[in-house]
Simulated assay, not measured.
Amino acid sequence: MAPCRWSRASGWSGSSRPSICCGRFGDGSAEGDGRIVARRDCSAHSGGKLPGKDDMNNATPQTCPVTDRGLHLRAACLACHGVPNHGQRQLVRGDVLFMQGDPADRIFAVASGWLREYVLNADGGHGGARIVHAGQIVGLEALGGATGAVYGVTVDALRPASVCAMPASGVRSWLRVRPDDALALAIATAEDLAEVRQQMLANATLPAEERVLGLVRELVGEGAGDAWVRLPATREQLGDVLGLTLETVSRMMQRLASKGIIEVRGSHVRFV
């Protein structure tokens, strides 16, 4: 198989290939050295003009909120910069990633967007919702390796999202020989569990207004300042997280606005 014509034309091959090169063979049938997979930055593969060495060396790689947390769950995580060669799924609002009761054979790292995790009740309703953001992991039941393991929740997309799907068996094999990565996953899981515990305690002890304010502040983010931010969830979905009805969430949002704490325009919010 011929190597990528970008690498061939630029005089690079193997380990001398610069960091921006995707390292795929020219016919796209196999990976090269696998160090970088930012294919959308590769004019060779898109049929565009071949860049020179300066263009390649000055290219800016993507970032990944999962690896930013120190999470490397497979070899591709070491160099993908948010654009892996394979295994990344694009979801639109309402897409179901997996259903409660489905066979648990993969874990999913959220590279971008917002997901919702919830439990289906016997009467067809749902509860116990959690909002999942970029950098978090879902489907960890699959790592247990038990025969017949199933997912304990349903996960769907609140907004367009990218998730990396990884076979649980491969992740287990990777973590066995990478203790630092196994520890990083344990720490990240503990942090996420702490978030869930904090939300449960807030739901049990805080008045509705404080619950709504706390969740909105978390979703808007500390760095937003007074900028308008679109909430990733509807008011009904916020109520599922907070254990409140749609009417109560709407009333609390109006109360916070009347106090001059926030401004609300439809699904957009800003702190004032």
Rank of each mutant, 00 (worst) to 15 (best):
M1T: 14
M1L: 14
W6Q: 07
R8P: 09
R8G: 08
A9V: 15
A9E: 11
A9Q: 14
S10A: 09
S13H: 00
G14H: 15
S15Q: 10
S16N: 10
P18V: 01
I20L: 15
I20M: 13
C21W: 05
C21T: 07
C21R: 00
G23H: 09
G23T: 13
R24E: 13
F25R: 07
G28V: 13
S29I: 10
R35T: 07
A38S: 15
R39P: 00
R40H: 12
C42K: 10
S43N: 15
S46H: 13
K53P: 14
D54P: 12
M56Y: 04
M56L: 10
M56Q: 03
A59V: 09
A59Q: 05
Q62Y: 07
T63E: 12
L71W: 01
L73D: 01
L78V: 00
A79W: 04
C80K: 02
H81R: 12
N85R: 15
N85C: 15
H86Y: 10
Q88P: 08
L91F: 12
V92P: 11
R93G: 09
V96Y: 06
L97A: 06
D102M: 04
A104M: 12
I107S: 00
F108C: 12
A109C: 13
A111W: 03
A111V: 09
G113E: 00
G113F: 05
G125T: 11
G127Q: 12
A129N: 01
I131H: 05
I131D: 02
A134F: 07
G135W: 02
I137V: 04
V138I: 08
G148V: 05
G148A: 08
V150W: 03
V150A: 12
L158Y: 01
L158T: 02
R159V: 06
M166L: 03
S169H: 08
V177W: 10
R178T: 10
R178M: 13
L183M: 15
L185K: 00
L185M: 05
A186H: 15
A186Y: 14
D192G: 06
A194L: 09
E195L: 13
R197G: 10
R197Y: 05
L206F: 08
A208L: 05
A208R: 01
E209S: 13
R211F: 06
V212I: 11
L213G: 05
L213S: 07
L215P: 05
V216R: 05
E222A: 14
G223D: 13
L231D: 00
L231Q: 05
A233F: 11
E236G: 06
D240P: 00
L242K: 00
L242A: 04
G243I: 07
G243Y: 02
G243V: 02
L244Q: 07
L246E: 03
T248F: 11
T248M: 09
V249P: 02
S250P: 10
R251I: 01
M253E: 04
R255V: 09
L256R: 10
A257S: 08
A257E: 02
A257T: 06
K259R: 14
G260T: 11
R265S: 11
G266Q: 08
S267A: 15
R270S: 07
F271M: 06
V272L: 15
